[in-house]
Write a protein that binds this DNA or RNA. Structure first.
Length: 653
DNA sequence: CTAGGGTTAG
């Protein structure tokens, strides 16, 4: 068992001042005592205060402040900025009070600065109050509040104020537009604000901002975050002026919304067709994500080469994305190698490695790296926990997962969010402790939300628990009625329980909402080319050959006791028909294609857009032995490494 | 006072 306490935390609690903190007051000469002379009544202290602020000596500046009878606007401005930089809310409140007494309470310039300061010091109520009390609101004051509220996640409030602003007749400027566009996606509420985004889109065009790069790039990003890929690309195409940021935003949009091919294509276009927009590290991170999504090792290596040539290989986010890319393309060792060569690492780089081992099913290694990170003196982030708990889940480490979950609050003062609860529900649910998983949800101190219920429903499918699945899906249909996956999971469960009437009912519900099941698809990369398979398309010229090979293999397997598992078929058909359907699954076609076309001894690498079905799993195990081939399959959740008739997941997935 | 990015769960 691993020790889950953190030596780092013990250390930092024993010393009151962290050693890395610069000791500003003691190392600087006491300027103030030299210059400050209370008897000298005619002195103008404004300049002294200002220079102290610029040096970062806020405390001393505050000591001088009472001696200045007429502080100027500029003096207050620097004091306010200094409070932000020093991260001191109490000093900020002092300065604020002082400025009110000095008669600057209606100064819109200082109001803007104060709002920015409170926003940076996470005191949004104070920011709001400044706004409310300022009668003469310039566009700067409005924008400052919009910015503050957007950063704090109060997008809806911004949009309400924006409406009011329009009613009063205050014209927006380019800054206003970027903030309100961001506000549409910076909202915690469950209802989509896409319609507002579209409305603002219209305002922007009406007011002639269609060639403003910042505004239009924000718009691309807004649509991207709503998953509206075609809207985003329309906006992008319409932009008369583009720069690196615009290109990066569009590439990121494709990479994050299931269009990795388009992302790579746009990257190619960027390199070939533009002169002033040269890809930078941010661009490359998204391009690497696209390679990860495609599981295209060859593409990934080419991009890695480009990164090296462009000298972007020492930038932390790029390296972390590289680690992830290699791991997700099935080359965990290369990911580890990239990590080992890093000169400097941060939490994110460690998280990349933790999750990499997790998706490959190496739970123990993942926990080990997690602990090593802590030992090196880094504090785990909430994502570290999502990653390591996910790793426990894949490996079936229930006890370890529980301990880590408990250590979150106890040792690291990180309060579990929905993501962590979703991991725990998944961990317990998969391990067939469904009641305990349900209990976790009941005991949650925050609103469960779709991720948590989704985890429960997923586990219910694995263990075919109709009752609990009905409970979970009832909530899910309310929370995210347009997510087809939930309906499909429920029909799967009903089908397995032979409740065909119910299967029909849920399918109708799915159709009534205009949704459809995501068709299963598998990809394989052979000699730098990617081939895609579904069970219905017959585009591949070798398709007959593939079906024949699978039939032959299936018969040989049957002789050795294989019984096709047809649970995944959602139609009430006879056994023979079901067997035929299962044998045509896209993954088997891809495996067969690999057997025929990949060079001898080469590992067959397949990527799938869904979870592996049980029959494909057992057939692939058999083939790995029969054909003496290593087969690596990445399904939506994790890797399966088939070798000599066994799978790295230990049949637990 | 403006825009894009790293690690995650089913």
């Amino acid at each position: 068992m691993w020790a889950l306490h953190s030596p780092h935390n013990l250390q930092s609690s024993s010393t009151s001042t962290p050693f890395y903190f610069p000791t500003r007051s003691s190392s600087r000469p006491p300027i103030c005592s030299l210059t400050l002379n209370p008897k000298n009544t005619g002195t103008n202290y404004n300049q002294l205060i200002q220079s102290l602020c610029k040096q970062g000596s806020l405390k001393q500046a505050l000591q001088v402040l009472p001696h200045e009878p007429n502080p100027t606007q500029h003096t207050y401005e620097l004091l306010i900025l200094s409070c932000s930089l020093q991260n001191s809310l109490s000093d900020g409140v002092d300065v604020h009070r002082h400025l009110l007494d000095a008669g600057f309470d209606q100064d819109p310039f200082l109001a803007t600065k104060l709002i920015n300061m409170y926003s940076e010091l996470d005191s949004i109520d104070d920011a709001r109050e400044v706004f409310d009390k300022t009668r003469k609101r310039t566009i700067y004051v409005w924008n400052a509040l919009f910015r503050a509220l957007t950063l704090a996640g109060y997008g809806q409030e911004v949009l309400g104020l924006y409406r009011r602003m329009n009613e009063i007749g205050i014209p927006s400027d380019r800054f206003t537009y970027t903030y309100v566009l961001k506000a549409c996606v910076a909202s915690e509420c469950l209802i989509s604000l896409l319609h507002m985004g579209k409305e603002i889109h219209a305002h922007i065009l009406r007011h002639g901002y269609e060639s403003h790069v910042h505004v239009m790039t924000t718009m691309v990003d807004m649509y991207a975050r709503f998953g509206c890929v075609s809207n985003a690309s329309c906006v992008f195409d319409s932009m008369p002026v583009r720069n690196v940021v615009s290109w990066s935003a569009m590439i990121a949009c494709y990479a994050k919304n299931g269009s990795p091919f388009e992302a790579l294509e746009l990257f190619r276009e960027m390199i070939l067709e533009t002169h002033d927009s040269v890809p930078n590290s941010v661009t490359m991170v998204s391009v690497l994500q696209a390679c990860s999504a495609l599981a295209s090792l060859e593409q990934g290596k080419l991009i890695h080469g480009y990164i090296l040539r462009r000298g972007l290989d020492s930038i932390l986010p790029v390296i972390s994305a590289l680690v992830t890319m290699y791991a997700r393309c099935g080359k965990l060792e290369l990911g580890q190698l990239v990590f080992d060569r890093m000169a400097k690492r941060d939490v994110v780089s460690w998280n990349s490695l933790i999750s990499s081992y997790g998706i490959h099913g190496f739970g123990k290694k993942s926990i080990q790296i997690f602990l090593e990170m802590i030992q090196q003196g880094l504090s785990p982030s909430h994502i570290s926990f999502v990653s390591v708990l996910g790793a426990c889940s894949h490996a079936g480490f229930v006890e370890e997962g529980k301990m880590l979950f408990e250590s979150m609050v106890k040792e690291h003062r990180i309060y579990p969010s929905v993501e962590h609860y979703a991991c725990m529900v998944d961990l317990l649910g998969r391990a067939n402790q469904l009641d305990e998983a349900a209990k976790i949800i009941e005991d949650m101190r925050i609103e469960p939300g779709p991720k948590v219920w989704g985890s429960l429903l997923g586990s219910c499918r694995i263990h075919c628990n109709v009752e609990l699945a009905e409970r979970a899906s009832r909530r899910l249909f309310e929370l995210e009625p347009m997510n087809a996956g939930n309906y499909v999971l429920l029909t799967d469960i009903y089908a397995e329980a032979n409740m065909w009437g119910e299967v029909k009912r849920v399918k109708k519900l799915l159709e009534a909402r205009g949704l459809q099941k995501l068709p299963g698809r598998s990809w394989i990369e052979v000699k730098r080319k990617i081939y895609s398979f579904t069970s219905v398309e017959e585009l591949n010229p070798q398709i007959e050959q593939l079906h024949a090979l699978l039939l032959k293999l299936s018969n040989e397997m049957k002789e050795q006791g294989y019984v096709p598992q047809t649970k995944a078929v959602l139609y009430d058909l006879d056994t023979e028909e079901k067997e035929r359907i299962v044998l045509g699954h896209s993954e088997k076609l891809a495996v067969a294609f690999g057997l025929i076309n990949a060079s001898k001894g080469e590992t067959i690498r397949i990527t799938k857009n869904l979870r592996l079905c049980e029959d494909c799993h057992s057939v692939t195990k058999f083939i790995s032995k029969f054909a003496n081939r290593e087969i690596l399959v990445r399904d939506v959740n994790r890797f399966h490494h088939f070798k000599d008739g066994i799978c790295s997941c230990g049949d637990y997935w």
